[in-house]
Design a protein around this nucleic acid. Structure first.
Lengths: 133, 133
DNA sequence: TTACATGCAAATGGTTTGCAAACAT
DNA sequence: ATGTTTGCAAACCATTTGCATGTAA
């Protein structure tokens, strides 16, 4: 994992009164290896960390805004909340890809619901990928 | 529930070789009373239908494209897939509201990912509602 | 009379909690 | 010393499955 990410995570943890333990940093390392992983995929990347600790670490990092939890294709998935992006989910093979071109950048919501203060949003697009098309 | 909806549902069920049983129509009736309900809310509106039957009916109606299942504010919610819309979720009080002005109508995806054939999408917006603002 | 549908009880499986030991400050 | 973190085992709880009974074409 990049040193930039490590330092950002350690800083956020310490700043909130938590420790940057080896287990927690292992989970972060696992998350950095790939986007939108399931719990099993994460665990396979840090098998030395106990199941319960993985759950608690994901909760903690989510609270700190470092990790994003989402439900993609019916299963919970997690990823580092670095750059803003959305997901394309292939309904045939399950392949998940990303796109960064966010259609909400233009303030659509503030125009349609001005009384609602938007803090976040998630968008998932379903269909068929190039291979299954 | 409106007769239009009832007939559409009965037609779809029969057309796919299923029966429009009283239990199934009760669940449909419950779904018609309000949008994006949790399982408990649905059950409270048709307590005469067994838990398992409610689950199976929601599955069946989802397969037929009549019901939309989504994860809003961490919990599964269901609604009749009548008109296309998206949800605003208040992170303070949990209030869920809808907006119909879909920012994806303009073919954003086909421009950014032309090799992906889009069949559906879901968008959830999180923030603070007018009362919690 | 045959296939479909229901609903109870039991099984399942992902997630959370209790608690004692290990660790950090 | 004191509070935090870990991880096992057990608890929990939403959802699914097995199966016997009821119902429709």
């Amino acid at each position: 994992m990049g040193d930039v990410v490590r330092e950002r995570v350690e800083g956020k943890l310490r700043g909130a009164g938590h420790q940057a333990t080896p287990q927690r940093m292992s989970v972060v390392g696992a998350l950095c290896e790939e986007q939108h992983q399931s719990l099993d995929e994460i665990r396979a990347r840090c098998p030395e960390v106990g199941l319960v600790t993985v759950y608690r670490t994901l909760d903690l990092l989510s609270e700190l805004g470092l990790v994003r939890r989402m439900e993609l294709g019916g299963r919970p998935r997690y990823e580092m909340a670095e750059r803003h992006h959305h997901h394309l989910v292939c309904e045939s093979c399950g392949l998940i890809s990303e796109f960064e071109d966010c259609p909400l950048d233009q303030g659509v919501i503030s125009r349609t619901s001005p009384e609602f203060r938007v803090t976040a949003h998630s968008l998932e697009v379903y269909g068929k990928c190039a291979d299954c098309g």
